[in-house]
Design a protein around this nucleic acid. Structure first.
Length: 306
DNA sequence: CGCCAGGCAACGG
DNA sequence: CCGTTGCCTGGC
C-alpha cells in the first residue's frame, strides 16, 4: 500500500516537514497537509474526507484550499499495476518494488521543482533544504496555517528581479546566476509550460536545455516530477554507480562507462545521453518509476543521513 | 586544515 | 566530439 512518508523521504521532495503526526509541504503558493490516523481511532467518525489506506486513514487539508490535491500530487490515477508490470523482466527493480512497495512518484509544482533542482547541484540534501528555506523566507510569502508559520515558494518574477547579492545571502553560492537565469526564463515565459507539456520527451528536454543553468540531470528531474514525462530517467552520481555495478550488461556497447572506477567519476554530457538512451530503451515508457525504485533501493543500502 | 557533496558551464585538446 | 576543471558553502 501507498506509503506517503516513505515517498516524501525518498529524496524527490525537499520542502516537507513533520510535526507530530502531521506532514506539511510547500507546493508553490500552497501549503499541503496530511495526517495519518491509526485505524484504532476510526470509530470517532468525525473525519469525513478520509481515504482508506492499509492500517489506517489519511486526512488531507491545504491552505489556501486546493481541492483533492492528494489525487494530483500522489498520482492516484496512475495505473500502478500496469506500470510496475512493465518491469517484470527486471530482477533488481522487482526486488526494489517488493521491498519498498509503498514508494510512489509525486507531482511537484513545476517552477518550484526546477529551482529546487538548480539548488541541488553539487551539494547535500541538508544544504539544499537550507537554501530553499532561505529563499522562501526572503522572497516567499509568510503564511500562518494551523498556528504555524510557513513561507510559500518564491515566484519566478521576484527571483528574477532580485539582485545577485540578495540571492547570495540565501547561501546559494555560485548557483545564484543559474537561479536568476531560470527564474527569468519562467517569468518572461521563454519557458512555455503548455508547449513543454504537449511536446514529446526529446523535444521538451531540448527546450529545457537551452536555458543557462539547466543541464541533463535537472531537465530530467523536472520532466519526470512536473512535466508528465514518465519516460524521463534522471541520472545522478548514485544512479550512475548503480547502473555500472548492476547493469553493466546493458552497456556492452559503451565499455568506457562500465570500466570507469575513478573516484572523481563525473557524468559528461555525451556519456549522459548514451546512458539515458540505453536505460530508457530497457525500462520503457515508465522509466521514471524504475528510477525512483532503484534510487531509493540503493540510497537505503548506502544508509545516508538525510 | 583538506576533502567532499544528488551538476553545471567554460575551456582546451 | 571528448575530457578536465573551477565553483559557493558548510559539515565532517
Amino acid at each position: 500500500m501507498f506509503d506517503p512518508e516513505m515517498t516524501i523521504n525518498s529524496g524527490q521532495m525537499f520542502l516537507w516537514e513533520k510535526h507530530d503526526c502531521t506532514w506539511y509541504g510547500i507546493y508553490g503558493n500552497h501549503i499541503l497537509k496530511f495526517s495519518t490516523l491509526l485505524s484504532k481511532d476510526m470509530k470517532s467518525s468525525t473525519s469525513l474526507s478520509n481515504k482508506n489506506i492499509e492500517g489506517g486513514t489519511i486526512e488531507y487539508d491545504s491552505y489556501p484550499e486546493l481541492k483533492n490535491w492528494e489525487r494530483w500530487v500522489f498520482r492516484s490515477d496512475d495505473d500502478l499495476e500496469k506500470i510496475l508490470s512493465a518491469f517484470s523482466n527486471d530482477l533488481i527493480i522487482g526486488k526494489a518494488i517488493k521491498k519498498y512497495y509503498g514508494l510512489r512518484l509525486m507531482r511537484q509544482e513545476p517552477c518550484q521543482c526546477l529551482l529546487s533542482f538548480v539548488c541541488a547541484s553539487n551539494t547535500s540534501i541538508f544544504m539544499i533544504r537550507r537554501m530553499l528555506n532561505n529563499l522562501s523566507k526572503k522572497f516567499g510569502r509568510k503564511v500562518i496555517f494551523d498556528r504555524k508559520e510557513f513561507y510559500t515558494f518564491p515566484d519566478a518574477r521576484s527571483l528574477y528581479k532580485a539582485d545577485l547579492g540578495e540571492l547570495l545571502s540565501c547561501g546559494v553560492g555560485y548557483r545564484a546566476k543559474a537561479i536568476k537565469s531560470v527564474a527569468k526564463s519562467i517569468a518572461l515565459q521563454h519557458l512555455d509550460s503548455e508547449y513543454l507539456l504537449s511536446a514529446n520527451y526529446e523535444d521538451a528536454k531540448e527546450e529545457l536545455l537551452k536555458i543557462y543553468g539547466i543541464g541533463n540531470k535537472i531537465a530530467d528531474c523536472v520532466l519526470l516530477f512536473s512535466l508528465e514525462q514518465l519516460e524521463a530517467f534522471p541520472i545522478d552520481i548514485w544512479i550512475s554507480r548503480a547502473l555500472r555495478m548492476s547493469y553493466s550488461w546493458l552497456f556492452t556497447n559503451s565499455p568506457k562507462f562500465t570500466q570507469n572506477n575513478s573516484l572523481t567519476e563525473r557524468i559528461t554530457p555525451g556519456r549522459y545521453k548514451g546512458i539515458s538512451e540505453t536505460v530508457r530503451k530497457h525500462f520503457g515508457k515508465y522509466s521514471g518509476y524504475a528510477q525512483q525504485y532503484l534510487y531509493y533501493y540503493i540510497r537505503q543500502d548506502a544508509n545516508r543521513s538525510w
